[in-house]
């Protein structure tokens, strides 16, 4: 009898759980259908305009043609995606690592901050398009100049954000660490770095999309592989469907990087800053 009761209870909770899942799915669908419908609508409108007004393909291809090209030229597109992805990731890692290290230096030395902050601002003001040819002249045609450009574009937002994050510590928390006789290293590892994580991730989200821009701009100048090179080539040869397909792929790369950063953030930051500050 007791066993039957337990089973019934278990069945009840499973049913309740199923109902909850169903409700959540319904809610997700309610949230998602408007943007999906909008995207489909725009694509249909685009195709109608291209067909209806007989727009020549080299000026603007319809979405159908772009998709067809993407499927047809997939292996070639992939061959050009990898170098760009690699440069973006390497630049992302390099630029952000250096920015975090310098931010740590800034927090521990007012002198270093006063000396180097203006230089960092100056570097940030140089347009990335203008600095690309200079770096290609210095480092040649390989991966190096592209990685450096991607790193440069990531560097500044991360430096500014992380410096702010490392400093945004409750003064009473620092007093607590002093009463506990904590060293500067312990304050850095146990207080400053964890409390700067939300600031770091805000910067990494920016960097996850700009590093792709950096790599592509680097490939525009005298390169024969990568999405950037493909964009230039497709433009000069009026291969518009290929150009559009390449642009979509570049955007997808940025979206994937952004998603990875967002998922990492959710895993690493489980606390709420505002509530705990009280």
């Amino acid at each position: 009898m007791a066993v039957v009761d337990q089973q019934e209870a278990a069945a009840d909770t499973t049913a309740a759980r199923r109902e909850k899942v169903r409700q959540r799915k319904a809610k997700t669908w309610r949230d998602r259908w408007p943007p999906l419908a909008a995207v489909v609508g725009i694509l249909v409108l685009w195709e109608l305009i291209v067909v209806g007004f007989e727009v020549p393909t080299f000026i603007a291809p319809g979405p159908g043609e772009v998709v067809a090209t993407m499927i047809e030229r997939w292996p070639m597109l992939m061959m050009n995606l990898w170098p760009t992805a690699l440069e973006s990731l390497a630049g992302f890692a390099l630029g952000n690592t250096i920015a975090v290290l310098i931010a740590v230096g800034f927090v521990h030395s007012r002198l270093a901050e006063r000396a180097f902050y203006p230089i960092a601002v100056f570097i940030n003001t140089i347009p990335i398009i203008a600095i690309a040819p200079i770096l290609v002249l210095i480092f040649g045609n390989g991966f190096t100049p592209k990685i450096i450009i991607a790193a440069l574009i990531c560097f500044f937002p991360t430096l500014v954000n992380v410096t702010r994050g490392l400093k945004a510590v409750n003064p009473a928390t620092l007093e607590l660490m002093h009463v506990l006789s904590a060293s500067r290293w312990e304050v850095l590892i146990r207080v400053r770095l964890p409390s700067s994580l939300p600031f770091l991730f805000a910067a990494l989200k920016i960097a996850s999309t700009t590093c792709v821009i950096g790599a592509i701009v680097g490939e525009w100048i005298g390169s024969n592989v990568g999405l950037g090179a493909l964009i230039i080539e497709a433009t000069y040869n009026f291969r518009s469907p290929l150009l559009y397909a390449t642009v979509i792929l570049a955007a997808s790369l940025a979206v994937v990087l952004f998603t990875i950063v967002t998922l990492l953030e959710r895993r690493l930051i489980r606390w709420k800053v505002d509530a705990a500050a009280v």
Partner: peptide, 17 residues
């Protein structure tokens, strides 16, 4: 240093993580 002094602040100053 001998941990004979403790301090409680107006803020709880807990590590949120």
């Amino acid at each position: 240093r001998a941990r004979q002094i403790s301090f409680v602040f107006q803020d709880a100053t807990l590590m949120p993580w």
